[in-house]
Design a protein around this nucleic acid. Structure first.
Length: 389
DNA sequence: GGGACCGGGCTCTGCCATAAAT
DNA sequence: ATTTATGGCAGAGCCCGGTCCC
C-alpha cells in the first residue's frame, strides 16, 4: 500500500466521506510528496482505501453520484454508457483515486478523462492494483512518461486485465526468450496488448513458431522465435490460427525449399505474417493479375514475392497505381521485378523523383532504376553529381 | 562513386463475441 | 443474469543509412 501511504502524507484532512454530489468533488489541489516533479493531484474525498467509493444504498442515487463524479473529471459519460455500461452500476469505484494516480504520473486532466471515457472499467481498479501494475510496467520502461503516453494511446492495453500475476509471469516469460531489454521495450511500446494476453496464449504462439522452425529443418528454434518476434512485434497479438494459415499459404504458393522458407520467415517475410490471411491471399492475387497482364510469367510473381515479401503488404489499389506510375515514368516491369524495393516508396515520392529525372533526361534503360530506390540524401547527392557532369 | 544488400526506425487500436466469474 | 476477462478481428507503408564490394 505504498500509494496509500503517500496519500496519508498529504496535508488535507482525510475524512471518511460517503459519495458526494459532484460539487463537493472540487477538492483543493494538493501536492503529493512523492510526485516529482510535483503535479497537482485532485484527491477524492476518500481515506486512501483501495476501491473506496460508495456503498450501494439506493442504486439510482448512487448511479447518479458516480455519473456526476465522472462528469467532474471531464469524462464522456455517453461514451462510457455505450462502451461499458456495467461499470456504472458498480457499488465501488475508484475514479478519483485513478485520476490522482494518473495525474501524479504526469497525465493531464484531458488524458485522464479520455482514458476513462475509452476504457471505463479502469475506474474499478484499486490503488493497490494500479500501483502494482505500474511497477511491473516500470520494469520495462525507464520513465513514467513513456507509460503515460501508451495509456493515452491505448488505455485498454493497460487496464483490460486485472491479473497482475499474469503480467508478471508474462514479463518473465518474454524475457526468458532471450529478447533484449530494448526489444521488450519496443514490444510493450508497439504492441502493449501482448502483455495483457494470458501467459498461455503467448506460450502457444512461441510453441507454434518453434514447431514451424523444427518442421522446416531448422536447428535453432529459440533463435528463430527471437528473429521473428523482433522483426514483427505484432505476432503475439495475432491468433496462432492466422500465423499458421499465412505460413502454409506462403509454403504452398511460393514452393520454396524448407531452408529458403525458413530464411524468408525470419527475414523480410516476418512482417507479412500478421496480415489477415484473406488480405494476404487477395494481395497475392492482385500482384499476380497485375504481372500477368504485363506479360510476366507465374515464376516472375514468385520471384518478386520471394525477393521482396513486403510487397504483399501493399494494398491492391496502391500497388496497381505504383506500378502504373513507374511505367509511366519509363520504368519497365522487368526492372521492377529485379529491384522490387522501389515499390516501398510512396507514389508521391516516386512521382516527384520521376519528374525531376525526366527533366534532366535520365535514362533508366541505360542507368538502371537504383536512383529511385535510395534515401533522399543519396538521391540529392546523385542529382548534384549529375548536374556537375 | 555507387550499386547491392541489409537492418532499423516509426508503428497498432477499438470494437465484438464469447467464456468465465460473480 | 449480468458483468468482467479474454481472444480475435479489420485496417493496410515509408524512409534512412551502414557496410561491403567493385
Amino acid at each position: 500500500m505504498i500509494f496509500s501511504m503517500e496519500l496519508m502524507s498529504c496535508t488535507i484532512p482525510l475524512l471518511h466521506f460517503a459519495r458526494r454530489p459532484a460539487v463537493l468533488c472540487r477538492w483543493p489541489l494538493v501536492q503529493l510528496s512523492s510526485c516529482q516533479p510535483c503535479r497537482p493531484c485532485t484527491l477524492s474525498p476518500k481515506d486512501g482505501h483501495q476501491d473506496s467509493g460508495r456503498k450501494e444504498l439506493g442504486s439510482e442515487n448512487q448511479n447518479r453520484s458516480l455519473l456526476e463524479s465522472l462528469v467532474m473529471l471531464g469524462v464522456d459519460v455517453k461514451m462510457v454508457q455505450r462502451r461499458q455500461p456495467g461499470v456504472l452500476k458498480r457499488s465501488f469505484t475508484n475514479e478519483q483515486g485513478l485520476a490522482s494516480f494518473l495525474q501524479c504520473k504526469g497525465a493531464s486532466r484531458e488524458v485522464v478523462a479520455s482514458i476513462i471515457s475509452r476504457f471505463p472499467r479502469a475506474i474499478s481498479r484499486s490503488e493497490e492494483h494500479l500501483q502494482e501494475r505500474w511497477q511491473l510496467w516500470r520494469q520495462i520502461f525507464l520513465s513514467d512518461g513513456e507509460i503515460v503516453n501508451i495509456l493515452a494511446r491505448s488505455p485498454e492495453s493497460f487496464f483490460r486485465s486485472s491479473d497482475n500475476s499474469n503480467l508478471e509471469r508474462n514479463i518473465i516469460f518474454l524475457g526468458s526468450l532471450g529478447l533484449s531489454s530494448k526489444d521488450l521495450c519496443r514490444l510493450l511500446t508497439t504492441a502493449p496488448r501482448t502483455f495483457s494476453n494470458s501467459l498461455e496464449l503467448n506460450r502457444q504462439m512461441v510453441e507454434l513458431l518453434k514447431d514451424v522452425c523444427l518442421s522446416l529443418g531448422g536447428n535453432d528454434p529459440e533463435h528463430f522465435v527471437k528473429a521473428v518476434l523482433s522483426r514483427n512485434l505484432y505476432i503475439l497479438i495475432r491468433s496462432t490460427k492466422r500465423i499458421k494459415a499465412n505460413i502454409e499459404f506462403l509454403q504452398n504458393t511460393l514452393a520454396l525449399s524448407n531452408g529458403k522458407l525458413l530464411e524468408l520467415l525470419q527475414g523480410q517475410g516476418a512482417v507479412i505474417l500478421s496480415l489477415s490471411n484473406g488480405y494476404l491471399m487477395k494481395n497475392f492475387k492482385g500482384i499476380q493479375q497485375k504481372l500477368l497482364s504485363h506479360g510476366c510469367g507465374k515464376d516472375d510473381v514468385k520471384k518478386l514475392v520471394t525477393k521482396y515479401p513486403p510487397v504483399l503488404y501493399i494494398s491492391q489499389e496502391n500497388l496497381k497505381d505504383k506500378i502504373n506510375c513507374l511505367q509511366k515514368g519509363g520504368v519497365s516491369m522487368t526492372q521492377i521485378i529485379k529491384k522490387p524495393k522501389v515499390l516501398e516508396f510512396s507514389i508521391k515520392n516516386l512521382t516527384k523523383r520521376l519528374q525531376i529525372l525526366k527533366d534532366i533526361g535520365y535514362d533508366f534503360q541505360k542507368n538502371g532504376i537504383g536512383i529511385l530506390d535510395s534515401s533522399q540524401r543519396r538521391f540529392d547527392a546523385k542529382l548534384q553529381r549529375l548536374s556537375v557532369e
